[in-house]
Structure formats: structure tokens, C-alpha cells
Nucleic acid binder design. Structure first.
Lengths: 344, 344
DNA sequence: ATTAGCACTCTCCTTGATAGAGTGCTAATT
DNA sequence: AATTAGCACTCTATCAAGGAGAGTGCTAAT
């Protein structure tokens, strides 16, 4: 692949910028006028023809303007987009909002989704932080009604799981508390999978209780179909390529299908990465429903300990600069919050 | 208001049925043909003219067919719609799905939202069951990291609240457990607001801890901005009156605004009630953004003890029969689940 | 009371003509 | 050798005009 001249790079950038703004194929003359270029439209035309030849631009039909191809966007994101940050003012405001808030994971996620949606003007997706290898720190068993039990697990990372279930028999709260305390002590520092090994160290009743709760224990932390927080759907509904057409519903259906979403977010490896931020343009072949969409994703948290994912999903012609900087900033901020939350 | 003849009632029903199906104003001739009426189009025309006169039908312009007015729908829902149930087969399948599932409130709500959306082919809204007057049954305080505390409240109804916060000093887990046990015992059967009154009965350290957690205690259960489960947004996106127009976004923005939603669901008193199910047609004046929408709502649970809300939101020309029967069935089913959950 | 018949109205779709934006190519200019 | 002015050509979007279709209201006949 031959490389682009500086002027071609500039023109590609301008075409993308203009097309992002208007959603209409952009012509040589309008480019010259709108950006006060020191070139004639004929020259621009020649360059655009070259870029089209190379596969970075596309013409809906002869005698129409040009719009960027997926490859055009990829080149732009990986080569031309210089890293920008959100304005300092904005960053401060956002940080404030997070720190002002009680240390409540649910609230944080909600706020993150809301901020991300507003900044990127696309759909935002945020998953709660999840421990990568679960280590139990504290266990509580609480009788709620009859044989129904509430189990609460505090993990080494500081986050909490709770789970209801029914026992085969009724146990007193005293018995349950004793067992929970015993398990807590014995399982100190053990990984979830290894908790069975403590059985010999417990008294008889505790063993019976442990047997009942083991499936719950492991199941709860293992697949952990993590909840996905979402916001800003009205943003993308307003975009011309989604209003009215069939295409919008396709993408939305994907968002309503939890399992899809989970898969989508966990595959954040695909696509080109820029400073920890992954950009998936036009579904990259893997996602038929997302052919008209792009995704900007990042992980956050403490790698190896506790991590989550956040990102935005929008039309291919979204503003990558804005999205990437928003995602980058928020992933940094959330990482910070997660780790100070642990250290505090 | 003069009352309708039987024939007028039938014709109104047919017009509504047809308009629900096609979203196009329906004319006399097409009515006669489509439903094989034993009448001429002229007669039907006269009757339709009368219904239009009375305000139950509307003509977009002279020489167009008729569509129902809001009043037409109200009359239909309150007077003409005979109560139907979901098919027995369907009811059984749905019940099975619920009972097959672990007693997990979060899962139930998700399933309820999904089923409701599928049955009604509209947007479904479900709130988790909430105690109407909060009575504490069991309290746990768990140290997670340093001064950070996890507080868990089990309410008399059996449901659970958890909350993180930081204390001013570090306390040992033993101290916290002792205090929690003391408070649990002393506060037995007390309403949340009256919990301050137990302070004199505690030892000194417990008093200090109690002081720190009282704001958290009351605040957590009071406003309880209940989480709303939602599903089926793609259903309504497909409807012609929402595709493309500005109107869709207006309604969706409302759905993304949590506070609005809460307000909306709690005002379930407005509108005509049919067997515990409330129907709000065209926003009933109160909701500007929902002028094009109707809502079918019901409460579920044990009145006075623990209740939640569920409903569907769709275009005015939704199928009220289907929506109402789905909402009615699910509210009954959830009520049952909630109360057996308590009795179990 | 019902209906057949008819004149009239309004929308929607098709057709044809036109303006506008854009292209590619060639020849002139720097 | 790169740039640009000029020109012929292409394709779309828009608008007006005309006709088909669906519907209405009214009157007179059944």
C-alpha cells in the first residue's frame, strides 16, 4: 500500500469531519468553500479520485460527492487522529460528580453510563467491575423466612454478592451465624473453587449447610452474567441513518439481547487499539447487525484483580475524537475509583 | 351523553380493531368487505358519521376514513372490551418459567419484563417489589476494607437492602457484629423511623456506631428510587407512528429519565381501572410527551405490605385486549410469587 | 330504516421537466 | 510538472400536473 501525501491526509480528515457533521456525501467544491482551502476544486477532485482509488473513499454513484469507507475510517483513527483530551473544565466537573457520590457501585455505573452517553452523543455501555479470580473474605448467612436464606459474600476485592435460596431444613439464625463464621475463618484467602477443601475442618451441622450452599457459592461468582448499564439510546435514534430504516432495529435488538451484549463486550480484543482504547469499525466482519455501527471500548480497573468494560456504540460516522477521549478519560477515572475504593 | 346502539358499539369495535391492525384510517367499504357485514357501505357510513359526531371517531380530512379518538378508545376499553385471558397453554408455560427459576428477585423482574414485552408487543416496565412500611428484621455490619463498611438490612417482608459507607474510625469485625446483633435484637419489629429510640439500650461503642449509621438506615429505605426493568423497546420502534418521526424520541427520552419514570409508575391511580388494571390513554393530559402513547398498569404484591408496579407502554393504537390480559396475568403471578416467597 | 347511485374531495403515485451539485477530462497557465 | 479554468456530462432532488383510487355526503328509490 502506497502511503498518502500530507495533502491527501488532510483532505481525508476534512472529508471525514464534514461527513460526520452532515451525513451527506461531500463534494470538492463544498470542501474548498467550507474550509477556505487554498486550492481549486479541480485539484481537490484529483486528490479525492486518488483516495477513492486507494479505497479510503467511496462514491454512491458517479457525479455524487464522496463518503469515507470503513478502511478510510480505520486509517483515520489509527494514523491521523491525534490524541485529544476532554477539556480540563469538563474533566474536573465529571470527577467531582463521582467523588461527591457515596461509594456505591450501582450509582457509579449509572453515572458513568450517563456521562459517557452525553459526551459521545452515542449509546454508552458500562459493565460493573468484576473480580478476575474470586477470593472470599467474609461470608454471612441470614435467615429471612422459614427455610429461605440470604447468602452474602464479601470478596477480597471489597465487592459484594448476595443470593437468595431455600435450604432443605430450617436452621436457626444462631446456627447459621456460627457456620458462616466458621466458613469465613477456614476459607480465608482461598479461591472460590477450592472452598470444598475446608469441609473436614467443620462440625457436622456446618458440613451439611456447606453442602447445600456450595453450588450457590461457585455459581454466583463464576458466570456472573454481569449487568450492563446503558444510556443515550435517544442520541443514536436521532441520527439520520437510523431514523426510519430497518437498520436501527437490528442494532437495537442486539442491545436488548443480554447474551449478545456480554459476548460483544468481552471480545474487546478485536480492532485497532489506541492508548488502551479499542475501536471496532463497522462490526469488523464479525457482527452482521453492526455493519452500520462502530464501537469504542476500553477496560478499566486493576488488571488481574478486578476489571470492567466500558464503551460507546454509535453510527460509523460518529465523532471518534470525542468518543475516544470520553472513553479514555472515564476508564482512567473508574480505574482510579476502583483502586482507591480498595485501598481506603 | 346519549348511549350507543348495539350496532354502533360493534362498528366502533371493528374500527378500533382494524385501525390497530393497519394504522390507516378505515373506510366504510373496507369495513363491510373485510368483516363480511350484512350491511351496505352507506348504512355503515351513516353510523360512522354519528360516531364521529359523538366524538368517538375522527376524520383526518373530508373524504378519508375514520380513526378512533382518545375518547373512542376510552369508551372501548371501559365499555366494550370484554375481559379475556391469555391462552391456558401460554399461562402454563409462563408460570413454569417463573417457578423453575431460583427465588431471585432480579431474575424474576427481568423475566417479567421480557414476557410482558413479548405478549403485549410494546415496551414493558416492571419495578421490584418494595415494602410499604419498612420494618427491620435483621441487621449486619461487615467490615470490607479499613473504615469502609457494608451494611445489610433484611426487612420484615424478606427483601434486602445493602449499602456501603465509611465510618469515622476503624472498628473490628467483632465489635461490628456485636453491635449489629444488639441493634437487631433491640429494633425487633420497630419501623425504620423509630429506630433512634433504641439508643439508650445500647452500650457506649454501639451507640457511637448507631449514630453513624442512622442516616444511612433511614435514607436507604425511604426514597428507594426503585430500579425499573424495561424490555421490548424494539417492538415499539417498529410501529409506523414512531419510525422516523420526532415523536418517538420524545417518548424514549422520557423512558431514559429515571425520575420521570418513577413518577409515571407511581401515579397509577389516574385513568380508568379494569379489574385492578389501569389504562391511561394518550397521556390523559398530564403527560405531554406521551400524547401518542397509552399505558396499561397494575400493582402487584400484598397491599399494605410489599408491592410493585408493572405495565406496558405502547402506541395509542396498541392492542388493549392483549396488553390488559398480559398485565393482569403477570400481576397475579407476581403477587403469588411474592407472597409464597414470604410464606415459604 | 336501508340502500343504490352519483357527484365531489382528498391523497397518493406516476410522469416529465428543471435546477443544482458533482464529476472527469482537456487544454491553458504558472 | 503541478495546478487550474472551462466544459460537457451525469445523477438526484424537487416541483407541477394529471389520473387512479378510496372515501364521503346527499338524494331518491326500495
Amino acid at each position: 500500500m502506497e502511503s498518502l501525501s500530507d495533502r491527501q491526509k488532510m483532505l481525508l480528515t476534512l472529508v471525514i469531519h464534514e461527513y460526520t457533521r452532515t451525513a451527506v456525501p461531500v463534494g470538492s467544491q463544498s470542501l474548498v468553500e467550507h474550509y477556505h482551502l487554498d486550492l481549486s476544486s479541480a485539484t481537490v477532485r484529483n486528490e479525492l479520485a486518488a483516495l477513492t482509488e486507494m479505497g479510503y473513499l467511496r462514491q454512491p454513484h458517479t457525479s455524487a460527492g464522496r463518503s469515507p469507507t470503513e478502511d478510510g475510517y480505520r486509517y483515520f483513527v489509527s494514523q491521523l487522529l491525534q490524541q485529544t483530551d476532554l477539556p480540563a473544565e469538563t474533566r474536573r466537573t465529571i470527577s467531582h460528580q463521582f467523588y461527591q457520590m457515596r461509594n456505591d457501585s450501582d450509582q457509579w455505573m449509572r453515572l458513568a453510563a450517563s456521562v459517557l452517553a452525553n459526551q459521545s452523543r452515542a449509546v454508552s455501555l458500562v459493565t460493573a467491575p468484576r473480580p478476575e479470580n474470586a477470593v472470599l473474605k467474609h461470608l454471612e448467612l441470614i435467615s429471612t423466612r422459614g427455610r429461605q436464606i440470604l447468602m452474602i459474600m464479601v470478596m477480597a476485592g471489597g465487592e459484594v454478592h448476595q443470593k437468595f435460596f431455600s435450604m432443605n431444613e430450617v436452621y436457626s439464625q444462631e446456627q447459621l451465624s456460627t457456620t458462616a463464621a466458621a466458613i469465613t475463618q477456614a476459607a480465608q484467602g482461598l479461591r472460590m473453587e477450592d472452598i470444598v477443601t475446608i469441609r473436614p475442618y467443620l462440625d457436622e451441622t456446618s458440613q451439611i449447610i456447606l453442602n447445600s450452599i456450595i453450588p450457590e457459592l461457585t455459581q454466583t461468582t463464576q458466570p456472573a452474567l454481569s449487568e450492563v448499564y446503558m444510556d443515550g439510546m435517544t442520541n443514536v435514534l436521532a441520527e439520520p441513518e437510523f431514523s426510519g430504516s430497518e437498520e436501527a432495529r437490528r442494532a437495537f435488538r442486539l442491545l436488548e439481547e443480554r447474551s449478545m451484549l456480554d459476548d460483544l463486550l468481552s471480545r474487546s480484543v478485536v480492532g485497532s487499539a489506541v492508548g488502551g482504547v479499542h475501536v471496532i469499525i463497522g462490526g469488523e466482519g464479525a457482527w452482521e447487525e453492526l455493519r452500520q455501527c462502530s464501537i469504542v471500548l476500553a477496560r478499566y480497573g486493576l488488571p488481574g484483580q478486578i476489571t470492567g468494560t466500558l464503551g460507546v456504540l454509535g453510527p460509523i460516522r460518529m465523532s471518534y475524537g470525542r468518543s475516544i477521549s470520553a472513553v479514555r478519560f472515564l476508564s482512567g477515572l473508574l480505574s482510579e475509583l476502583v483502586s482507591t475504593g480498595l485501598a481506603d
